[in-house]
Design a protein around this nucleic acid. Sequence first.
DNA 1: GGCATATTGTGAAATTTGTATCAACATAAA
DNA 2: TTTATGTTGATACAAATTTCACAATATGCC
Lengths: 210, 210
Amino acid sequence: MTQIKHNQLPGKTVERLSQYRRILYNSIREGKTNIYSHELAKMMNLTPVQVRRDLMLIGYSGSQSKGYVIKDLVDLIGRIIDSKEGQKIIIVGMGNLGRAITSYFVGKREKLFIVAAFDNDLQKTDRIVAGVPCYHVNRLKEVIEKESIRIAVLTLAPEATHEVARKLLDAGIRGILNYTSVPLTVPPGIYLEEYDIVTSLEKLAYLVKQ
Amino acid sequence: MTQIKHNQLPGKTVERLSQYRRILYNSIREGKTNIYSHELAKMMNLTPVQVRRDLMLIGYSGSQSKGYVIKDLVDLIGRIIDSKEGQKIIIVGMGNLGRAITSYFVGKREKLFIVAAFDNDLQKTDRIVAGVPCYHVNRLKEVIEKESIRIAVLTLAPEATHEVARKLLDAGIRGILNYTSVPLTVPPGIYLEEYDIVTSLEKLAYLVKQ
DNA sequence: GGCATATTGTGAAATTTGTATCAACATAAA
DNA sequence: TTTATGTTGATACAAATTTCACAATATGCC
Ligand SMILES: NC(=O)c1ccc[n+]([C@@H]2O[C@H](COP(=O)([O-])OP(=O)(O)OC[C@H]3O[C@@H](n4cnc5c(N)ncnc54)[C@H](O)[C@@H]3O)[C@@H](O)[C@H]2O)c1
Ligand SMILES: NC(=O)c1ccc[n+]([C@@H]2O[C@H](COP(=O)([O-])OP(=O)(O)OC[C@H]3O[C@@H](n4cnc5c(N)ncnc54)[C@H](O)[C@@H]3O)[C@@H](O)[C@H]2O)c1
């Protein structure tokens, strides 16, 4: 009778749920129907306890004999992470990284759609790039509002980052994934994820050095 | 008299040190010589206390009147993160992502060098790609050993991930940055960082949905 | 000088995140 | 039926990380 309460899941748990699902998709493809916490844990470099704890938080129960039913678990994770209608995403900056991400991502998830890209280079605008229509940045607000887009990925030249971020928020974007080397600050209620490969490499270099 | 002990810095602190330095480079470029904890904090979406705590951990002291001396701080972070001789890095998989990362990274840091890339596509091997020599993967061990390389970035097609990872470890790689969608497991003493854009986007989608 | 203000450095508390342990239960074999 | 084995779910515990609170101190202004 445990109530499913996924209102305030820990951030780390949300990330792991996404990764559980990625692995479970593969398991389904291999014909598996059930999985034990220790199997999932091994594939993710975690302890079985942590897996069970995450699943407990989302209110999913397995059986002692068969473990977890993969299909049900995938569905539940979907109900927690995905929104029913799906979420639309835009890419801003269709250079090397923007194109790599777009072509990698397209069709990857049922409920996440990259619906448009933007650039200020006329060579790239008003055509299909990496499978997605690419508009001129001065049409950001127009497209975002018309399509009710709430998530944006920033892969543009660093100089314009702040200005573009401001315009995105103004147009109604609620979540930003920032890959530029310029850190952003966003008001409360807006979600921001940042990632820089240099940080990852410097961390590795520090660890390896020890 | 506080002893500088940067033997076992928290992982999160190491990441932030890298980011502090990135910001401080910009501040230097803008002509700033000193900075207060609250200024640095604002630029990184942190609290001033956290900044001071991190700097305390690396044994750096500022002054109440002028804050921190940017140049000194950058130098100290360098002494902690960088190794004196520098670290060599290889890229395995010179597709869209591999090339984007390589051309972005080359020349970015004084003490980190992407010295080689590898692929199994004969169209890409035995030539310079994105400014770096690209070899056939069957020469991994040879090059890694000859050049004493300890860090590898994985941007190859997912199928070959496990096999390549095994070969990397066999050849002496100590740190892996894995961008493929296949999670890895590594033995103790080997450092692993993984990143997947899908996880970041799904986390954002979850947050935005709330 | 004396006072108001601003900043750093840090012990201690709070929070977040991960781990160990174990009762309860299901299964299969003796 | 009884026992051995293995798994889940949950509570208690531990570790990592962040935040609070405030002493100490430098500066500028009256
Ligand atoms: N986070 C990471 O790990 C990582 C890795 C590589 C690159 N990067 C960053 O990602 C960004 C893009 O890198 P890249 O290698 O693709 O560079 P790139 O030069 O290939 O692409 C930049 C693109 O942005 C476009 N652009 C410039 N100004 C714009 C504006 N005002 N509005 C819209 N588009 C604009 C350019 O026309 C170009 O197409 C850079 O900021 C770079 O620092 C991050
Ligand atoms: N982490 C992320 O955010 C992210 C984003 C995009 C792509 N990816 C992943 O990165 C990888 C590369 O993506 P991409 O878009 O560049 O794909 P891509 O197809 O453009 O590049 C893959 C490259 O790997 C090479 N390759 C294949 N087998 C190899 C082997 N055994 N040894 C060496 N090289 C080999 C191919 O020749 C090709 O050049 C994929 O695994 C993809 O899933 C991750």
